[in-house]
């Protein structure tokens, strides 16, 4: 085959693989597991990447109700009866940020470390 022939073969292979690669990376996201805790106890663990549609979880504490809202691979506090509503203002849970905390009702929503089993993590808040 002449040089031009090989160039066409390789260029096509390259384009196909490049497109394939972009499709894979653009649409996949690392598995994200979150844990919802109240009073220090694990209420529920959820893998955000497997959630389809919407879901609401209601919790009640000393200061009323908290409603957790999950959809599209994200989780946030939709509403809360606590006085400051800091948990609602927190917005969506980000992997690079701090957990969603409702102190009055003692609710914490945070990412779980899927990999190794550790008791605590240094350097991950604030």
């Amino acid at each position: 085959m002449k040089n031009r022939g090989w160039i066409i073969v390789f260029a096509s292979a390259l384009i196909i693989c490049a497109v394939w690669w972009l499709c894979i990376t653009a649409f996949s996201s690392p598995a994200k597991t979150v844990g919802i805790y109240q009073n220090g106890e694990l209420i529920e663990k959820i893998d955000l990447t497997t959630v389809t549609g919407e879901r609401e979880i209601e919790l009640s504490g000393e200061y009323g109700r908290n409603i957790v809202y999950i959809s599209n691979g994200s989780i946030k506090m939709k509403s809360a009866d606590c006085p400051d509503k800091i948990c609602v203002k927190h917005g969506e849970l980000e992997s690079s940020g701090s957990p969603i905390v409702c102190l009055p009702n003692k609710v914490i929503i945070k990412f779980e470390d899927a990999s190794e089993k550790i008791d605590a993590k240094a350097g991950a808040a604030g």
Binding site: F10, A13, L14, C17, A18, W20, W21, I24
Partner: peptide
Amino acid sequence: FYFPILVVSGIIAGA
């Protein structure tokens, strides 16, 4: 999962 990107880098590096 890395197969396609390895083909791409192989083609470029090989050339």
